[in-house]
Simulated assay, not measured.
Amino acid sequence: MPDRKISATRMTIAYVIGVAMTALLFLAAYFLLDNIIIEQRSSAQRVHVVEQQRALSQRIALLSTDLYVGDTSTSEALQNAVSEMERLQDTLSGKADPAARQLTAAEHELYFGGNAPLDAEVRSFLDDTRRFMAATTMSAGDAAYKALQHHSRDLLLPALDRAAALFAGQADARIAQARLAQQVLLALLLIVLALEALLIFRPLITKIRLYNAHLYELATLDPLTGLANRRQFDEYANREFRLARRTAKPLSMAICDIDQFQQINDKHGRAVGDAVLRRFGELAARILRDTDIISRVGGEEFALALPVMNLHGAMIIAEKLRRGIADDRSDNLPPFTICVGVAVSEHGDKNMDALLQRADSALQMAKSEGQNRISCLNRPMTEKPTPSDAVPQDS
């Protein structure tokens, strides 16, 4: 019992560890997916800002051209475009909210490092546009217009293209890292499940199977002799009785009783008596066929069911069993004998009990004649048996 408790405790601990590891892997997968969603949303927002800036820079260039040729109605639209582009740049660079800026090293280098940082290019372009809009002379307006067009076409658009390529490349790299992490988590999960199946569920199923087999033995076997108990014998014998009636084939029953068993217990002790019972079961199992069944139905009383066996064959089996017991000389066991009563199924039998009653009556008749005897009785219980039904043997 202590070993079973230790084994169950270890299995429980292993099961808890396995479940905890599986839960941790699922949580890791959840947070990985959540992090991917956040990062991809951030990358998408940055790419969207860059694309908006590209569109606004081209819009500013076109509106400034319209204003340059004298269409003053575009002044307000141009001012709004400049303000929107500056707002986007402040948001992206973190000027509007420094706590919200989460640029990577490469992004920071693009926007604020090097000889021509993108942030400076955008703000220089916006400054040129404001100077153009504020110019009061033709020469100042021409210079500012040429500067903003140069910025838009030759400096700003290529820089914004580089920013878009950088954001897209980083997004692809994050996707590749996420896919690798996904594959690693999947591999770990499969390994954990395989280990759980191998180290937890397989032993658990094995223990359950062994425990069920043990319970089946407890429910169907006699604990002393290992033979079938009365419950299993009744199930088997009833099934064979129904089969015999359906197929019109004989079914023989035999009841055996160890002679003077109480004297063996009194003289040699209960342990020797138990050994005699076990020895009888061993010898009987050697003589019987695989299709036969023997059961301990009482203290020293045993019942045998012999399917597809007529009375003659059953008597031969009974004689082999009687002689085998009488001739046995086991070490440390006193010699003992048995009496056997035999009966075979008849057309008028309604159930198995009628057959067993005739076998038991035959046993009583054999015991009334003495010890070490076999007898058969194969007529209705209302008829009185005659001496010819008993088959006396030498004691």
Rank of each mutant, 00 (worst) to 15 (best):
T220Q: 03
V192W: 03
K207E: 12
H150A: 13
L186P: 02
I200L: 06
A159S: 10
A159W: 01
A173I: 08
G169T: 13
N212H: 09
T225Y: 05
L224V: 03
L218E: 12
K207R: 11
L221Y: 02
R209M: 09
R209W: 05
L190I: 10
K207G: 07
L204Q: 11
P158W: 09
A194G: 10
T206Y: 01
Q170H: 03
L198H: 08
I191N: 05
E196T: 15
A181F: 03
L224D: 02
D154P: 01
P203H: 07
R162H: 14
A163Q: 07
A164I: 14
K207C: 04
K207W: 05
I175L: 11
Y211M: 06
L227I: 14
D154Q: 12
R209A: 08
T206S: 10
A165G: 09
D172C: 03
F167W: 00
R162K: 15
I191P: 00
P223D: 00
L186S: 14
P158S: 08
L215E: 14
I200V: 15
G169E: 06
F167H: 00
A178F: 06
R179T: 12
L156S: 00
L180A: 14
A159N: 02
A187I: 13
L186V: 15
H150C: 13
A228Y: 01
I175N: 11
L185E: 10
A171K: 14
L221G: 00
Q170F: 02
P223V: 06
A163P: 05
A213D: 08
P223Y: 02
A197W: 13
I175G: 05
K207M: 11
F167C: 00
A168V: 12
N212T: 14
H150P: 02
A168R: 08
V184C: 06
R179L: 13
R153H: 12
S152L: 05
V192C: 11
Q170K: 02
P223R: 06
A159M: 03
L210S: 02
D161I: 14
K207I: 06
H150V: 09
I200M: 07
E196V: 15
R153S: 11
A194F: 11
L189I: 03
H150K: 14
T225F: 01
Q183S: 13
L193W: 10
A228P: 01
L215C: 06
L218T: 13
L221V: 04
A213L: 09
R153W: 05
P223E: 03
E196H: 09
F201D: 15
L199H: 07
G226C: 08
A197F: 11
A168C: 02
V192I: 14
R153I: 15
Q182D: 13
Q177N: 09
L210P: 00
L188R: 04
I208E: 01
H214V: 01
T225E: 02
A171H: 12
L160G: 05
L224K: 04
L227E: 04
L199E: 09
Y211W: 04
P158A: 10
L227S: 02
A178Q: 04
L224F: 09
R209E: 11
L180F: 06
A173T: 15
T220S: 10
D154N: 09
